[in-house]
Amino acid sequence: MTARICVARIGAAHGLRGEVRLWTFTEDPMSVTRYGPLSTKDGARQLEVARARAAKDHLVATLTGVTTREEAERLNGVELYVAREKLPATDEGEFYHADLIGLAAVDAAGTRLGTVAAIHNFGAGDIIEIAPPQGATLMLPFTDAVVPTVDIAGGRVVIEMPGEIEGEEPDSV
């Protein structure tokens, strides 16, 4: 299956004619109107952004085939995906978060810590989730200090564990 990247999430209905609030995860929020049909996570449904306009921190969008408030309400929370190859190429040193999923996570000495399971953002910045071979996953801030090296070609990210970062004191209990 082709790699897909989440480019937007549908929010609450807006108005009575099927418009929705749309939160985009793209550098240019309006680019979601140029990708053609977007699919749901399971690929079962395709939706196309017919029109969109900027609002305070999101877009207000009309989706093809969604004409009533009730239809729009049923889409609240749905994530929209696009095939990776439809997105612009990245520059040197840039990457899409989806490119990191599955890469090996190693420490500065090269010891394997696990695999990158996900990149999250709960509102205060990106979090990298590392799945170790055994035990609970690690959730770490995705900052240059914690993740100083991303080597997609080499299939790895280097993780500096908190407390090992130069000048940082470990949390005491």
Rank of each mutant, 00 (worst) to 15 (best):
E27R: 01
A50F: 04
E27H: 10
L22P: 00
R17S: 09
H14G: 00
R45Q: 12
F25M: 03
A44C: 05
D28I: 14
L22W: 06
A61V: 11
W23C: 01
D42F: 01
P29T: 13
A44Y: 06
E48P: 07
R17E: 15
C6S: 07
G18R: 08
V60S: 10
Y35S: 07
T26L: 11
R9P: 00
H58I: 12
E27M: 07
R34Y: 05
M30I: 12
M30F: 15
V20R: 08
S39L: 09
G11E: 06
A13E: 13
A54D: 14
V32Q: 11
Y35D: 01
L47G: 12
K56S: 08
L16G: 10
H14T: 04
D28M: 12
K41T: 03
I10W: 04
M30Y: 15
V49R: 04
A44T: 05
H58L: 14
A55H: 03
I5Q: 00
V20L: 09
R21Y: 14
G11C: 04
D57N: 13
H58K: 10
A54E: 06
R21F: 12
Q46T: 13
P37C: 04
E27A: 14
R9N: 00
A55W: 12
T26A: 04
K41F: 12
K56P: 07
R45N: 15
P37Q: 13
G43Q: 04
E19K: 08
A55G: 02
A55V: 10
S39T: 11
K56T: 15
A50T: 03
R34A: 09
A55P: 13
F25I: 03
C6P: 00
S31G: 06
A54H: 04
G18C: 05
K41I: 06
A8F: 00
Q46W: 01
F25Q: 02
V7K: 02
A8E: 06
P29I: 04
L16R: 03
D57M: 13
G18P: 12
A12K: 10
L38W: 01
G36K: 01
G11L: 12
L59A: 01
D57Q: 08
E19L: 11
G11N: 10
L22Q: 08
G18D: 08
R34N: 14
A50I: 07
D42L: 08
V7M: 00
R17N: 14
W23D: 09
C6T: 02
A44V: 07
R51F: 15
E27C: 13
T26H: 11
R51H: 11
A12F: 01
A55S: 12
Y35K: 02
H58V: 10
P29W: 12
W23K: 11
D57C: 03
T24I: 13
Y35H: 03
